[in-house]
């Protein structure tokens, strides 16, 4: 009995060590399991793409305004798009864009679409329930004509992207989608002015 009590005391006295060893074993299993699951490091890259993106966003609008001044916005935008594309290519960046601008020289509204994506796109333009579908090859443009009220909603749908823009008929508007890609680095966005 004396020996049993001592053995019992021995075990209860060693409780802390048992808990500690158990905790150590559990932690090892836990870390190994979690490490295997989340072994990939997340790399935060500082990238120059964002600077170029901001630069292009600002300049597309500026070139559009310069083109409006000379009533030559389509040629200026097409030329500028090619200019940017060549610069981007020198820096191993793939630049793609879709430019849509509206203006009215008559009572009708002209909507011009310029496709600078690498592939053909199928795009639907809905201006005040007047729906037009176009298939636009890479590097090409098209001009659509609509008769909306003074203030209207233009709905743009392509490549699972849908945008609704509230626009004014008697104001020139430009909307563009830009994509810059270098390897795994990608920046995409759109802008309305």
């Amino acid at each position: 009995m004396y020996m049993s009590l001592t053995k019992s005391n021995y075990i209860s006295g060693k409780k802390g060590q048992f808990f500690l060893i158990g905790a150590l074993l559990f932690s090892m299993v836990f870390y190994l399991g979690i490490s295997a699951r989340f072994s990939e490091n997340i790399v935060v890259r500082h990238s120059d793409l964002k600077y170029l993106y901001n630069n292009i966003e600002k300049e597309y609008t500026h070139v559009f305004n310069l083109g409006l001044n000379e009533s030559d916005e389509l040629e200026k935008l097409v030329n500028f798009t090619i200019f940017i594309k060549n610069i981007a290519r020198e820096r191993n960046i793939n630049f793609e864009s879709l430019v849509i601008f509206t203006k009215n020289d008559t009572e009708d509204l002209e909507v011009t679409l310029i496709n600078n994506f690498d592939n053909q796109i199928n795009i639907t333009i809905n201006v005040s329930d007047d729906v037009k579908n176009v298939s636009l090859n890479s590097g090409s443009y098209t001009i659509l004509s609509f008769s909306p009220p003074d203030e209207f909603v233009m709905e743009i749908m392509f490549n699972n992207t849908k945008r609704e823009l509230l626009l004014e008929k008697y104001k020139a508007n430009i909307y563009f989608i830009i994509s810059l890609r270098r390897g795994d680095d990608v920046i995409k966005g759109d802008f309305l002015a």
């Binding site: 120059d48 600077y51 170029l52 630069n55 292009i56 300049e59 597309y60 500026h62 070139v63 310069l66 083109g67 000379e70 030559d72 200026k76 030329n79 500028f80 200019f83 940017i84 610069i87 820096r91």
Partner: peptide, 11 residues
């Protein structure tokens, strides 16, 4: 570093 401009008062 490269910065792009479309022009100042003309394209």
């Amino acid at each position: 570093s490269v910065y792009i401009i479309g022009g100042k008062d003309v394209y």
